[in-house]
Amino acid sequence: MVLPPFALHRPTTTAQALSLLAEDSVPYSGGTELLLAMRMGLIRPTALVDLKRIPEMQEIRTDRSRLLIGAGVSHDRLATDPLVEQHARLLAAAEREVGNARVRAQGSIGGNICFGEPRSDVATVLIALEAELGLANSAGERSVPAEEFFLGPYWTARDATELLTAISIPLPCAEGVYLKFQTVERPTVAVAAVRRPGGDYRVVVGAVGEVPVWADYPGVGEVDPVDLVGRTSPVSDLTGSERYKRHVTEVYIRRAAELLAESER
């Protein structure tokens, strides 16, 4: 019931936030993942650095040929923002189905990504859209492709002293479908199948294994569900055995590819 004690910092600029981050002084926004982990004793930071008072972390805007989303933007805003709907419809659609209405109101896209939960809806979609993740620390900034960000369960390319500042999606954005099978609060398997602006196709399979896997195809008819399932490493848990999940994954890849093909007819 009770959270362990911690100090609360409330910086109003990114620079202030960066000066406060350390191994045990961690970024905090919606708390939908962090506070649960703290209550379970999995993480015990001495300080939380609240990012909600940093205005630029809450921005959604376009800049030349990119859609830029501040890491603090909530799922609910992404699900309903006109700019996101206009430029990245697949992200908006996936965001409408994240968790439940409370998680969507509280939780931020940046927190979702940085927590590295293997069953993240957002991770699967951002890889499909070839998003770039902007990371900053007091020494400077770097940009990491979403494809290279998710290293393992609850493990990402972000260093403890780094802050994810913004998610950058190239425009025009890939279009397609996001399909998931879900019986509890997170998906058992999630599939994003998109046609990329260059005319080829990408299928990303998330949630079923420790990290998302994906493959690119010249045509939607060439999507090979059996091969793609073979690249996943499903984890047996209460939502199903490994064998069952392989079967469901194959079905969902096939359905996603069919839906994408139909949408193009």
């Binding site: 609360l8 708390g31 109101a105 509280q106």
Partner: peptide, 12 residues
């Protein structure tokens, strides 16, 4: 906006 009061800091 709806939130879960069990997992939301009073400070917020």
């Amino acid at each position: 906006a709806p939130v879960s009061a069990c997992t939301y800091l009073a400070a917020d």
